[in-house]
Amino acid sequence: MGNLFFIPMLSKNFTIEGDETILHEFKEKWKTANLAYYPSSGLDLNDLQYLNRRRFKELEGNDPEIYIHSDLLWPDIEYYDKRRWLGCLKEFSITSVNTFRYLHGENRSVEIHKVKIGNSDTVKWLLYFRGYMNEEVLANLLRNKIQIPIVYTYCDGITHGMGNFEGTIPTVFYPLIARQLGIKMIITEQSAEDFCKRTDDNKSLREWIKNTLDLTGSSVLKSFLKLDDAIFRQTLHQTLLSVPEYSVNTEAKKRLFVRGGDIDMVIKTPEIGIMNILSAYIEENSKVEQITEKKRGRKRSRT
């Protein structure tokens, strides 16, 4: 099956559906294509419609050519195909040219869609992991050292929406894997400030960092988990807030529209050295923790 990274994700008994010439065309495009990833995409095709150099100068002319989508919660292929898919294509002014599928059991498929956007003759490709967890896709991207410069995410189903399953990593944590995946830009509705204000459940925060550690094997994250709860939460917030971000839309220019209405999407530009930033915060806050503990010990000894 060539060099497609997702083939090991399929069971031995997968079947195929569609014209194999589309598969071969896709495999050639994969070798050189600019990639973007939309985790927990559902049937949203906003990224195909809006992520282009006309709207985002930040792309520096490197428009995505293959858009990778994944969602665990769209397993019903009858509902997905016949009742919603064609309607979604029409809603987003997208024309399907052809499709090829790897059918993996009853509730999973890896789908290759060749499409055209609006009235343009420009071909785009959608690689959709239907019935897969985002983390399965991420693990295979990392294993194959595939770079994903752009992440688009709206309602990840973990810290926004419904669908928080065991082993998940919220998209707000993706700056922590930016170096390994080559992420240069994240477009999302979840600003770091908003997340830090409304999320203080240490159990969930630790679980999500543990899941990120399991994915990356980072020694920094391993040290991070050893901090006590208050310092752990403070350090996480400091690190996430250190990632530069700014609004996608301004009063003068609307670059992106989402289904939820007038939602303030932001662009994050993760620093490649964010783990160094996290490591520095861990060291700094650990010293504060040690000093505080010594003071408590002195007070206890006096009493």
Rank of each mutant, 00 (worst) to 15 (best):
D194E: 14
D47Q: 14
E293H: 10
K210D: 07
I186E: 10
D264W: 04
I117C: 13
K124L: 10
S109V: 02
K299W: 09
F14W: 08
R108E: 13
N13R: 11
K90N: 09
T216C: 05
T188Y: 00
R179W: 07
G42A: 09
T216M: 05
G163P: 04
T153V: 12
R53K: 11
S93F: 15
G105K: 03
F232H: 03
S219Y: 04
L213E: 08
R54V: 03
E193P: 04
I282W: 02
N134Q: 06
E135H: 01
A139C: 02
E136L: 07
E193D: 11
G161H: 03
G163M: 12
I209E: 00
S279N: 14
V137L: 04
T122Y: 05
G105H: 05
I68Y: 08
S223I: 04
N62V: 01
D262Y: 03
V115Y: 00
R198N: 14
S11Q: 09
R300M: 12
N34A: 08
N211G: 00
E78L: 12
S41C: 15
R255V: 05
H24W: 12
T216R: 02
K57Q: 13
S204R: 15
L43P: 01
L35M: 06
N98D: 13
S109E: 14
S109R: 15
I117Y: 02
Y154T: 09
L213Y: 15
I77F: 10
T21Q: 07
V243G: 01
E207A: 07
S40R: 09
L23V: 08
F195G: 00
S191F: 07
A230Y: 13
F129S: 08
N98R: 12
L73A: 14
M1I: 12
Y50S: 09
I112H: 01
S286E: 10
M162R: 12
I209P: 03
F14A: 03
N34P: 00
L86T: 11
T239A: 07
E25Q: 09
M265W: 11
T303V: 07
I282V: 04
L89C: 10
L215T: 03
T122E: 13
L225R: 04
K254R: 13
S40K: 07
I274L: 05
N211D: 06
Y174F: 15
M275H: 09
S219P: 00
D201A: 10
T159M: 08
H24D: 10
K299L: 13
K124H: 04
L142G: 08
T239W: 06
P39H: 03
E135L: 05
L89K: 01
R233N: 08
I169R: 04
